[in-house]
Amino acid sequence: MQRFAYRRPESVEAAIQAVSAAPGRPNTPPVRAPGQFIAGGTNMTDYMALDVMRPEILVDINRLPAARYGRMEAGAQGLRLGALVRMAQAEDHPVIKSQYPVIHDTLKLAASRQIRNMASLGGNVLQRTRCEYFRETSWACNKRQPGAGCSALDGFNRQHAILGTSPDCIAAYAGDFAQALIALDATVETMGANGGRTIKVADLHQQPGSTPNVETVLEPGELILFINVPAGPWTARSRYLKIRDRDSYQFALTAAAVALDLDGDRVREARIALGGVATIPWRAHEAEAALRGKPLDENTAAQAAQAAFANASTRQHNAFKVPLGKQTIVRALLETKAMKV
């Protein structure tokens, strides 16, 4: 890997300043930005070793005050999670386990425990795609090099997205946790050179469109500090179903985060977010609407699943994700309904 400067600032202001100190180049895609934050480093070091990311300045944020950014609060209003909380810590939190099981599931089913011991929640939300053509720098990739073309479109694309794709990019969003967050209407609090703001997680990631290199709405140097998950009548009856070839340590082929507020069999409110099938964490609003006010059974679940994939666009190796994604939704809905809450 190329040489880089390594900074360990102790305040948010210093961190933002440090990451912005790298001389910016015009039209540099964020993945190639010269200044990068690092927390757990599980994604960053992987991509640095592959030469996909080549930071000149790496700003380690692990020295930011742990009492503030490494803290989890669970109250009547919901959860407030510091961005430096490790995935494993949140996974083990008793309130998350009992009152927000969908969050617990997405964490528990991600990567391996060793990786979750390192990876931060803030970094995890920004987890990069596993597209093989993105990961190997000799392939043309619009994410790495705008305008270069997309090698995955007509390549080996078994793991690629079928929702939110564009003619320029079909890379799937690889994370799990963010699906739980968008299902529960979570927000992130950020800080940047121009001050702080709150962003809905659902608005954080951007579909590739004609600029697959722009992956989020975050400004250069903007740092996620907190994740807020509002309480709601649906959080306790919730789960994440992740379908993959092997039983652990694999990214989702398809996945569904489901949260239900039921009145007997009838759906007062359904929250459905999909993983493994879309270019970003994907909220299946059409599926939710199809269920609202109806009894949840095999038929309505299938109708919801149908609605979720009505606009799917498949390629040579990933067409199976449509029927599989539908089955995943049906199974997740019925299993969530059957939960003892």
Partner: peptide, 16 residues
């Protein structure tokens, strides 16, 4: 060759 690491070339893990 496309899948050139042990994440993308699947072998069983303990859970399997």
């Amino acid at each position: 060759t496309i899948n050139r690491d042990l994440q993308d070339y699947f072998v069983p893990v303990n859970a399997d």
